[in-house]
Design a protein around this nucleic acid. Structure first.
Lengths: 210, 210
DNA sequence: CCTACCGATCGGTAGG
DNA sequence: CCTACCGATCGGTAGG
């Protein structure tokens, strides 16, 4: 109703609506996929929860697979962007590692449904997508591993193979999608802090100063 | 060909064969479920890998769901039996907890496919099965939690809510089904030991003697 | 233990 | 001519 809105070109408004509807579909689909599993959800189910017809969904997404793949891509972009931002602050390995683990745990708890899909539905992707996902995962893990390796070199972390230390941490956090309860006695922040401190102790070298 | 075999009654032989074939089907089915996902595997697929026809599978199992449920039950029985045996040795909380985490990690690594199914396909169970599974999981977690709680009472573990401490440990171990590689540089035993020691440090109370 | 087939339901697409 | 959608139905495949 403001002039600014009136002035916006037709295409921009259309694009904005397109984005809004795509997001809406992704969120609804993710909820259903997390609850019933990807294969058990029909395009009609997705459409019905939004009171659309199936054809509307096909207007916004090429097919069912593209919906799933978008969930994977957006999840990866969020997680990856967050840990890279932390890495780029150039703090000590201990502080960087703590912040990254904290952030990963928070991301899982903030969106447990998307985390569940990310961890369960890999077999539904096509070969090219699987390959790309495994590259994405390798890159993500590498960010953690290089920080851990620096900590080992500095003598502040125990000399554990980095992929084992990182696999342990990410596993601990990823499992939160199963049991974290947003109405539980502890908040997401409190759990994230506990995890970071437990792992920090588990990583610490015997002779490192506390 | 020995007398002992000859002497076995017909029914016993039949029963033994029945058990062998059921096991064989479960193992094949589990491999396929883990690789492609339960819904993506057809009864024909399961039959084909064993060079049976689909009807043979239906002779040994009522339906596809019963195969999946058997995988759940057997997995639970193995895990549960192992940790209860450790609990019943009545060691200190620290030793008991270490042994239980070690055993859980080993069970995941010894059979990563069954662990993957156990953690991914819950949505394919029917309501009664889901309810029973959630009872089974609660019981399993309770064994760990009561040991942890004793450790807190004794002042050897930090005062963390037991379900958080246990969720962290089991998550760390369960995630092994994703990245553990039996041909990797570390053996399952070495990884299990590392996990137990990392968690033991993470649990330890500040003022506890080492 | 196999062949043949069912009831149903799926993802995806047609014309208007 | 393009966009956003609807009602109807396609070919193919699932468990049993």
């Amino acid at each position: 109703m403001t002039k600014a809105h009136k002035a916006a070109p037709r295409e921009e408004i259309a694009l904005r609506k397109h984005t809004v509807v795509r997001d809406e579909i992704l969120i609804s689909a993710a909820r259903l996929f997390a609850e019933r599993g990807y294969r058990a959800v029909t395009m009609d189910d997705i459409a019905a929860t939004l009171q659309y017809t199936k054809s509307v969904i096909y207007y916004y997404f090429k097919n069912k697979n593209e919906i799933l793949w978008q969930i994977y891509c957006r999840t990866f972009e969020k997680y990856s962007g967050d840990v890279e931002a932390i890495r780029d602050k150039n703090e000590t390995p201990e502080i960087t590692m703590s912040l990254m683990i904290r952030q990963h745990a928070l991301n899982v708890m903030k969106n447990p449904e998307w985390a569940a899909i990310y961890n369960k539905e890999e077999s539904e992707l096509n070969p090219q997508q699987k390959q790309q996902l495994s590259r994405m995962k390798r890159n993500y893990d590498a960010v953690f591993e290089s920080v851990f390796q620096r900590g080992v070199s500095d003598g502040v972390f125990r000399d554990i193979p980095p992929h084992v230390a990182v696999g342990a941490s990410l596993g601990m956090c990823n499992w939160l999608h199963v049991w974290f309860n947003s109405k539980g006695s502890l908040t997401a922040d409190e759990i994230a802090d506990l995890f970071a401190s437990m792992l920090w102790k588990g990583y610490k070298a015997e002779n490192a100063s506390s």
